[in-house]
């Protein structure tokens, strides 16, 4: 019997790694399924309707819309570019991009099943607040120093 500090063989290490990955496959397939459903039903045009209600309101909208959106981070930039042409502030767009890349309602059940409900709740709440603060502080820094 190995002790907790013993080193596994390379074959054993790969086997353990694969087994660990395999145990999470139902969760991964579920997330991909949910993201696919979301991408079909929620279009960038739909998202743009939530903006254009003032800077602070747009920062909150950006955070919320980014959090409920999902997909490759590059898509967030493409959507943000379209929103910029509509005159949406950079701060709201930063909140949107940050929320898109760091928060995702579609990932919540998966994150909770792996790391626990407590960690998931704390982390997502902190990420939500961080996103709003970063958008606001970035705006403030640009105004104060540049």
């Amino acid at each position: 019997m190995k002790t907790r500090n013993s080193k596994p063989s390379l074959k054993m290490a790969f086997l353990n790694s694969f087994k660990n990955f395999l145990s999470l496959t139902p969760m991964i397939f579920a997330v991909i399924g949910l993201v696919a459903i979301f991408q079909v039903f929620v279009s960038p045009k739909m998202l743009s309707r939530f903006f254009g209600h003032g800077e602070i309101a747009d920062i909150f909208s950006g955070t919320f819309i980014g959090a409920i959106s999902s997909g490759n981070g590059a898509i967030a930039y493409v959507v943000a570019q379209g929103l910029k042409h509509q005159g949406i502030s950079d701060y709201a767009l930063i909140a949107f991009i940050l929320a898109w890349t760091t928060l995702s309602f579609t990932h919540l059940p998966a994150e909770a099943s792996v790391f626990g409900v407590k960690f998931t709740a704390y982390r997502n709440l902190l990420t939500f607040l961080s996103t709003i603060f970063i958008a606001y502080l970035s705006a403030l820094s640009v105004r104060l120093f540049f």
Partner: peptide, 21 residues
């Protein structure tokens, strides 16, 4: 013991697919 994680979540998404279909 080997155990799958997220099975309930997967069942929920499968149910969503069935409803959509």
């Amino acid at each position: 013991k080997f155990k799958f994680k997220g099975v309930k979540f997967l069942l929920f998404v499968v149910a969503l697919f069935i409803l959509l279909s």
